[in-house]
Design a protein around this nucleic acid. Structure first.
Length: 361
DNA sequence: TAGAAGTCGGTCGTACATAA
DNA sequence: TTATGTACGACCGACTTCTA
């Protein structure tokens, strides 16, 4: 197994990044041209893991050319390396710090379970074209016989990461002075979009942040990521609101139908475990059915308040009762949340489209 | 020998693809 | 059109190895 100084590996990446940022040498231009087809497939792939893992493979080849870059788990024995550690301590921190669009680690996402970077691994991967391009580019790395060749190839990858980063920055459209009716249209359009639950969560957070600021409250509003397993984090809800360190409201935001089964499940896994007295289900589409209301009634008799609210109605009704600057605050909170690197580009594009749609009416 | 660090499999939630 | 399966992205924690 190769012994790697991960800090040094990260410094190497940074140094090559600075070199390619300053100017693109003829050799790097040549590498970009020769591998254009595979680089296009790799950097157009929805699976970020391929390009990130490839960068790690090229880096380890530069550090120790005796390493078999197809064996990124030390369990594979002679010649293998720890791809995941190299990624977690060198490659991924570098990509994050330089604001490149990237995952949190390819070896816990697309690649796992002692993967070998061989053609047979393609079975089971979604983007086979992207993976095939990665394999072709691994051939190129293996055929880099000098340090300079490998460095040029890494700089060629970094140049494509720079292009990717430039393309990923999306300037967000401002709402300007929207009427309540325009906000209704905007919200309806956003929550009807398939965002994996992200829009409803962001809208809810912005709404409660607006209430807190509007009324000068000491609310501490926390939330968790969309794809975070609730049980794992022990979170009380998707959004939690505390005052003086005590949770007074936990919110579950859902696009799925609400029925008794869902209420009981949430009660058992979140409400009772955290002793949350007030729980709010915010839904986007389907009204909670009768069994859900019956379950809430039963829980009320046991001392737990469980309520339901349609996300658009909740916000619009509050706008009606608040001064117009509340809408401005809500809008600015939305823009801050959307501008986060965690928010996918597709969501930002949808926001801009929705703003355009409302303005066009 | 105990605590720290390294390694990697388990599991959850969502989006998307495919079959019925 | 609906149901089911799969891939991906995320975090947790068990187990192993290292080190003082």
């Amino acid at each position: 197994m190769a012994q790697v100084d991960y800090q040094e590996a990260k410094r190497i990446l940074l140094s090559l990044y600075h070199r390619v940022s300053d100017s693109i040498s003829d050799d790097v231009e040549k590498a970009l041209e020769e591998n254009k087809e595979n680089l296009d497939a790799l950097f157009n792939s929805n699976t970020q893991s391929y390009r990130e893992a490839l960068l790690g493979c090229a880096l380890i080849h530069l550090i120790d050319s005796s390493v078999n870059i197809r064996l990124p788990y030390i369990k594979h024995g002679e010649g293998s390396f720890n791809g995941r550690s190299l990624d977690e301590y060198s490659v991924n921190p570098f990509l994050q710090e330089q604001l490149f669009p990237c995952s949190k680690g390819p070896y816990l996402a697309a690649f796992r379970r002692s993967v070998k970077l061989l053609p047979e691994t393609a079975e089971g991967l979604r983007d086979k074209v992207g993976y095939a391009a990665m394999l072709d580019l691994l051939d190129v790395v293996e055929n880099c016989n000098t340090e300079a060749d490998t460095e040029n190839f890494i700089m060629c990858l970094l140049q494509r990461f720079i292009i990717l980063r430039n393309a990923s920055y999306i300037r967000l459209a401002r709402t300007g002075r929207f009427s309540i009716e325009q906000y209704r249209k905007l919200l309806l359009d956003l929550v009807s979009h398939q965002s994996g639950g992200l829009f409803p969560v962001l809208i809810t957070i912005a709404f409660f942040q607006m209430l807190s600021e509007q009324h000068s409250l000491d609310w501490e509003i926390t939330w968790q990521g969309i794809n975070v397993a609730d049980n794992a984090t022990g979170a009380e809800g998707d959004v939690t609101i505390k005052s003086n360190g005590t949770t007074f409201l936990a919110i579950e935001i859902t696009e799925r139908p609400l029925d008794q089964r869902r209420i009981v499940s949430t009660f058992n896994t979140k409400i009772i475990l955290n002793d949350v007295k007030e729980y709010l289900f915010i839904y986007t589409n389907t009204e909670p059915d009768d069994t859900a209301h019956q379950a809430a009634k039963t829980l009320f008799s046991q001392g737990y308040e469980v309520n339901f609210a349609n996300i658009v109605e909740l916000i619009i009704n509050n706008f009606l009762a608040l001064p117009s600057n509340a809408r401005t605050i809500f809008s600015s909170k939305m823009l801050v949340l959307l501008d986060s690197r965690e928010v996918p580009a597709a969501i930002k594009v949808k926001w801009n489209d929705s703003i355009k749609m409302v303005l066009a009416i």
